[in-house]
Design a protein around this nucleic acid. Structure first.
Length: 256
DNA sequence: ATGACACGTTCAACGTGA
């Protein structure tokens, strides 16, 4: 079973690129971030024509997440628990073949300090609470998406420029480490020692050509799921195609 | 020191992103 995550930066602008990649990679499940569309505006047919069931959690203009699955999805829930006043569409869950899939788009958090950073840290605490709940169920699960966190210095081409940024400052990295300290496995670091491995390159200043990237899209696996991890790959070549997203897909192969 | 690039909203210019 292949599960993938892809921040597409707008479904309307990225539909051809998404369809091309789905045909090529053919993931069984894919979580998408930044669909930037309301549910009614999502172009369902091209996705469904490829054999995918589709669940969206969108909002107007910004954010928005979705899950695609070749197999039926059960118990779909929208929104991250823990704050009934949070109206940003950043989180969706569904169960596929007994595996709980959590798709997330974690807040950017800049500028620091400020309300956006406070929201990011509070959101990460809520995510930790949700992970703790799921661990207690002993049901296999994974949390995949755009975490907007550079976990360690080796996850940025130029870590020194990110020192005070919401994606990398110590307080952010500590919050991410609290997740892994619960017993969640970062799938990429569990399967490769390759360096200069990134999932995002800025559109500006030739960042892709210089491989001036950052690794901010992650798969965190619970112990039962990590035991079945076979590989984790980043489809970096997608970044060099026509009209690309600034992120590329990351995918895991699981013995499910 | 600044802007650079892209997307969505909506048609001129701004908010947001990372």
């Amino acid at each position: 079973m292949i599960v993938a995550s892809f921040n597409i930066n707008g479904i309307k602008a990225r539909l051809p690129a998404l369809v091309d990649w789905l045909k090529e990679a053919s993931p069984d499940v894919a979580v998408l971030q930044e669909i930037k569309s309301v549910d009614e505006g999502f172009p369902r047919e091209p996705i469904e024509d490829l054999g995918y069931n589709l669940e969206t959690h969108g909002q107007k203009g910004f954010n928005g997440v979705a899950i695609l699955s070749k197999s039926p999805m059960e118990d779909v829930t929208r929104g991250l628990p823990g704050d009934d006043t949070d109206e940003q569409a950043r989180y969706i869950e569904a169960t596929v073949n007994g595996l709980r899939i959590c798709g997330l788009y974690l807040p950017n958090g800049n500028p620091v300090p400020g309300p956006k950073y406070d929201y990011k840290l509070a959101w990460m605490q809520r995510l930790q609470n949700r992970a703790t709940q799921l661990l207690a169920t002993e049901q296999p699960f994974l949390m995949a998406g755009d975490y907007n966190i550079i976990p360690q210095a080796e996850d940025a081409a130029r870590p020194e420029v990110w020192t005070d940024d919401a994606l990398y400052r110590l307080e952010s990295r500590n919050a991410y480490r609290r997740l892994t300290n619960l017993g969640l496995t970062d799938a990429l670091r569990a399967t490769t020692r390759a360096d200069k491995t990134y999932t995002f390159w800025d559109y500006q200043a030739g960042a892709r050509q210089k491989n001036n990237g950052i690794r901010i899209d992650h798969f965190l696996l619970c112990p039962q799921t990590a035991d079945r991890l076979q590989s984790c790959e980043i489809d970096a070549h997608v970044r060099d195609r026509e009209k690309p997203s600034d992120h590329v897909p990351i995918k895991v192969t699981l013995d499910f």
